[in-house]
């Protein structure tokens, strides 16, 4: 469990997924990917773990994933085979609300 800060990068312990925290609740959150806790992007993944079959839907590059109340938002900066969850509840893909191109 940890307090997340926007701009923090996390990576999956079991696949290539990397995310950046875009929004975080003011509370402790445990993010997981592929069924295992995510780790700091610079850390080394523990060995011997594998993706849990119930968390293997994969992540998509450049997509945003949010929790039910929208307080936690993760941006996928590297895609992988595991799927994201917070507190054991799967995160869902956030619908893009396109802004007009301004530059």
């Amino acid at each position: 469990m940890a307090r997340l800060k926007t701009g923090t990068r996390l990576k999956s312990a079991v696949c290539n997924t990397q995310v950046m925290v875009v929004a975080a609740p003011d509370a402790d959150v445990d993010c997981s990917c592929g069924g295992h806790p995510m780790i700091d992007a610079a850390a080394t993944a523990p060995e011997g773990l594998s993706i849990s079959p119930e968390a293997a839907k994969g992540t998509m590059l450049g997509k945003r994933y949010v929790d039910a109340d929208g307080k936690l938002e993760l941006l996928c900066i590297k895609a992988g085979a595991g799927s994201l969850a917070a507190g054991g509840v799967a995160l869902v893909l956030k619908e893009a609300k396109p802004l007009p191109s301004s530059d």
Partner: peptide, 23 residues
């Protein structure tokens, strides 16, 4: 870096442009 990257993340959808688009 945090300013410009936040601007892009906040205003642009990744890979949203079609292959024919040119700016």
């Amino acid at each position: 870096h945090k300013h410009l990257v936040s601007y892009i993340f906040g205003s642009v959808e990744f890979g949203a442009a079609g292959e024919d688009e040119a700016a």
